[in-house]
């Protein structure tokens, strides 16, 4: 643990370049620790995002040695092949500066894909009882631990090819809501996602599922949406 770490960090906006820093290695060091060290000790002008540092908030994602990762839970020991790190902003989102990307478009897609819960009852009604063992609840359960980190969005090649594609995170959210028996917008939401820019554009390559730090499976969620869309189409409902 005495050796130094050779770190290349993206500086500037999309027209920026990599800059080299040397950071001492530490015990149980995370990639976020490395970035924080650079910002506090070597170059205070470095911009990046983080909040919780424990894998809850989803704000610290970056491209680490070519792969999208949550940096607060990525240990240097595991990800720094050959003792070096290359840190770039997430792919598929405009770079604001250095390691911070503009996630506005990412979250707009959540809205486009009907990512908003539409209640069917009010606070005056009794609390809905949803049996944990029901298939719909289990399907929703499998997808609800999303922390909105954007890693899947950065990993998806269809997002890179088609700027209109809603992307794995937004579609995964839509799938959890389609399985929420308390939600009253299933028809409209299915309409919103049943297009080439929605679930039909997915190639089921599984990059999203491969890199999701919470081990969610947006590929599976999107396949579920495709099934719903085809069923509705065959019944003449869409």
């Amino acid at each position: 643990m005495t050796t130094d770490l050779d770190v290349q960090v993206w500086r500037g906006d999309s027209a920026g370049e990599l800059q080299r820093y040397v950071v001492p290695r530490g015990d149980k060091q995370t990639v976020l620790d490395v970035v924080t060290y650079i910002q506090r000790r070597l170059d205070p002008t470095l911009s990046y995002r983080f909040a919780c540092r424990v894998g809850m908030c989803g704000s610290c994602a970056m491209t680490v040695n070519g792969k999208p990762r949550w940096t607060c839970r990525a240990s240097v020991e595991r990800v720094a092949e050959a003792g070096s790190l290359e840190l770039r902003p997430l792919r598929n989102m405009p770079v604001i500066k250095d390691l911070a990307v503009d996630m506005t478009g990412f979250f707009e897609k959540w809205q486009e894909a009907g990512g908003r819960f539409v209640p069917t009852s009010t606070r005056h009604d009794p609390i809905a009882v949803v049996p944990p063992s029901s298939p719909a609840r289990q399907a929703a359960d499998a997808g609800i631990e999303c922390i909105n980190c954007g890693i899947c969005h950065a990993a998806c090649d269809v997002v890179a090819w088609d700027p209109a594609y809603q992307g794995p995170a937004a579609l995964n959210r839509a799938w959890t809501l389609q399985n929420d028996v308390r939600d009253g917008d299933h028809g409209q939401r299915l309409r919103a996602v049943a297009s080439g820019s929605g679930c039909l554009g997915c190639h089921s390559m599984g990059n999203c599922a491969r890199y999701c730090p919470n081990s969610l499976n947006p590929t599976g969620s999107i396949a579920g949406l495709k099934r719903l869309a085809v069923k509705a189409a065959l019944k003449g409902e869409l």
Partner: peptide, 11 residues
């Protein structure tokens, strides 16, 4: 791709 084309391709 529209839903119609998608279904047609699967069929």
């Amino acid at each position: 791709m529209s839903l119609r084309l998608y279904v047609l391709q699967r069929l």
